[in-house]
Amino acid sequence: MAHHSDNDMHHTGDIPEPQTRGIWKTFFILVAITALEFVFAFFMEAGTARNVIFIILTLFKAFYIVAEFMHLKHETKALIWTIMIPLALIVWLMVALLAEGSYYFESITNYF
C-alpha cells in the first residue's frame, strides 16, 4: 500500500513523530538573513557595495529555499545539474542586458 520509500506505514494506528527540527532551523536562517537585509537597508549608504551585499544574501536565501525546502540538495546529482546548468542562461542574459542598458544610457546622455 505504501509506495513511499521513506516509511512503510500500512495503517494509521502508529504515526511516527514529526521530524521538524531541520525545517525550523532553515526558517530561522531565512528570517535572520531577511532581518540582516533590513539592517543593511537602513544603516548603510546606498551604493554598489550595499547592492553586492544584498545580492549575496539573496543567493544565500535562494540556496536554503531550493536546497532544503524544495529538497533539491537531497536529489541525485544528475537532477541537481539538470536544474542548475540551464540557469546559467539567466546569468548570461543579465550580464548582457545590464551592459546593454548602461551603453544605451551613456549614448543618449553623451550624444543627444
Binding site: 543579465m94 542586458l97 544605451y104 544610457f105
Partner: peptide, 8 residues
Amino acid sequence: GLSRHTHL
C-alpha cells in the same frame, strides 16, 4: 535592471 540602467 535594463530599464534602470537606461535611466538616470
